[in-house]
Design a protein around this nucleic acid. Structure first.
Lengths: 329, 329
DNA sequence: GGTCTCCTCTAGAGCGCTCTAGTACCTTGA
DNA sequence: TCAAGGTACTAGAGCGCTCTAGAGGAGACC
């Protein structure tokens, strides 16, 4: 603990016998230095173990090169998105700072922290914030909402088409021969209404009767729905998301309802749990990496005042068929 | 997007008719301003919507008041710890910055980012780093390792007694009447060796024969272990952690092995999954909030050069009995 | 009246960087 | 010979804070 203070630009400059400005030019990798000098400065920097001070860099720069991200720590799909954001940001030469939304730290708190860092843009994965506040936020910096709709016309939205996703799932089940397909919905969760709607219209297109069961975003919601379905189970269930499917699956299996033997189950998100070898959940994939890439690209476009065609970018999801769906008995 | 630039100390000072320094004193809440002035400055600050610039604050301050935290995004127990760290840090007047460890962003990368922010201290929840590097790190700033042992004598460690935890679990099962108790271990995972050792010695103390099955930190490791145990299942299984237990449980239930009817299962961590109503996993609780509080307190103690008695703080875990354990048939 | 102390407030020097404006030097070409 | 146009580099002014040193008054005490 505490050696002498870390080396600064000044130290490198002194040792290399050049000006501070030149070192700055070299370490940023911008043109303006001759090759031999560049080499020498880099060598000295390395020798001293120089690392630029982010605080100073952020403070001095005109543009901040910092992307602020809010996320819920306990949601696997958020983790996937965040992971994608890190790599995408790096490719564009931006940094990422995370701000977690927890039980006693709401979205506004999380966003305020990001503002205090004077982030260049805010990417919101975390729970949605109220409308008037969101639009006010968008007046201060570019805001990108990820993976969910937003009422605000002032923010960019990168998401997948929930309706299309549900249609894919219904079509798949119908193709397998299912007729009684229930949907465990996401209550007021992000995207829940759209998925419910997508499910209903897909069912109608096949002349089937929709059956919506109250659910939610977590495992226990799926479990509760499974218990509700127990007396008269359909032949297939579509859940709001993977976590919900996991809870449902567990209760089904425990109560002797075989999956996919008796009931087929389809999740949503293709989060890491869905891929687990013992679960092998058929699910609708949102392609987190792609969403993340587009979100960063959009943020950068806004920051660099490039023209942007559509405020909302809607990706087409695709179905990943694994082991929880089969023809009905 | 982009209104005029956010108000600064200068703006508040000008409007309130005082010096920049005084405003700084007021917004930091340190003594040195009269009550009437304090009120007025606060009013003006509020009116202008002033929020201190973290970058500048961090740069200018002698002490950095920033705690850097590394964590793996996909581990529920890490999320619990991080949540606790946020609140504990706030209570001590410190800020927290998260740096995620992902597949293509290893611990060193994550820590480097923290260093670039000139964090005052580093709290490591994320995967462990190699020894020589860790000790080198500890020469630069206080390092606190959370929830796992460390070979380095230069860092502080806040963790729970893994041996004691395993003993609690074994004692509980023995008290219920179990004799054949297997352990699905954590391979090379953090704390795995200690838990294995604790399990072995607890078994010996009861004159029982240990049976260790190869496992790991994730659900699929538990699932694999369950398949390995299938031919000759014991009456009870202790897993390395909750995620591992979840995988094991799932495979057991699917293959008709009733839990806790035929086999009792005990997890480790008491992470949020263990508490899910449909799982109700009996588990060894590590009390994330308490670990987090102690970690922050320790970091603060190091930063303020308070005397510290023990380099390593080992909490006693306790058993949370839920629904996955019962007397053997 | 003088001086000591306490309280409130201010001036101004950094913190480590980025970036604009400009200097010095080297080629070219008329 | 000198202007024009590069390229390589430097000086120095910020960015928005914190913090030290010290100024200016009011009161207390002798």
């Amino acid at each position: 603990m505490n050696a002498s203070r870390p080396p600064t630009l000044e130290d490198v400059a002194a040792r290399a016998g050049v000006s501070r400005a030149l070192v700055s030019i070299v370490v940023r990798g911008v043109p303006g230095a001759s090759e031999p000098t560049r080499q020498r400065v880099l060598e000295v920097a390395d020798e001293l173990g120089y690392r630029p001070d982010s605080r100073a860099r952020l403070l001095a720069g005109r543009r901040s090169r910092l992307l602020g991200v809010t996320l819920a720590l306990d949601h696997p799909f958020h983790a996937d998105l965040a992971e994608g954001l890190y790599s995408a940001a790096e490719r564009h030469g931006y940094e990422v700072v995370l701000s977690a939304v927890t039980r006693d730290r709401n979205s506004r708190r999380a966003i305020d922290t990001l503002l205090d860092y004077r982030c260049a843009a805010a990417l919101l994965i975390g729970p949605p914030v109220r409308e008037p506040w969101l639009s006010a936020l968008a007046e201060r910096l570019p805001v990108i909402v990820l993976g969910q709709r937003s009422r605000s016309r002032a923010v960019d939205v990168i998401r997948t088409a929930d309706e299309a996703g549900m249609r894919l799932a219904v079509d798949h089940l119908v193709a397998l021969g299912h007729g009684e397909i229930a949907h465990v919905d996401g209550a007021r969760g992000p995207g829940a209404a759209a998925r419910r709607g997508g499910y209903r219209s897909a069912m109608r297109r096949h002349d089937l009767t929709p059956r919506v069961v109250a659910g939610g975003p977590a495992e226990e919601d799926g479990a509760a729905a499974a218990r509700a379905l127990h007396t008269a189970p359909p032949t297939a269930v579509l859940t709001y998301n993977d976590r919900c499917a996991v809870g449902l699956l567990d209760v089904f299996v425990r109560s002797g309802i075989a999956v996919p033997g008796t009931v087929s189950v389809v999740g949503y998100d293709d989060s890491q749990v869905a891929r687990l070898p013992y679960l092998r959940l058929t699910t609708v994939s949102q392609d987190a990496a792609q969403l993340a890439t587009l979100a960063v690209r959009r943020a950068v476009a806004r920051l660099e005042h490039e023209p942007v065609s559509e405020r909302e970018l809607v990706l087409t999801p695709h179905l990943v068929v694994r082991g929880t769906t089969a023809p009905p008995r």
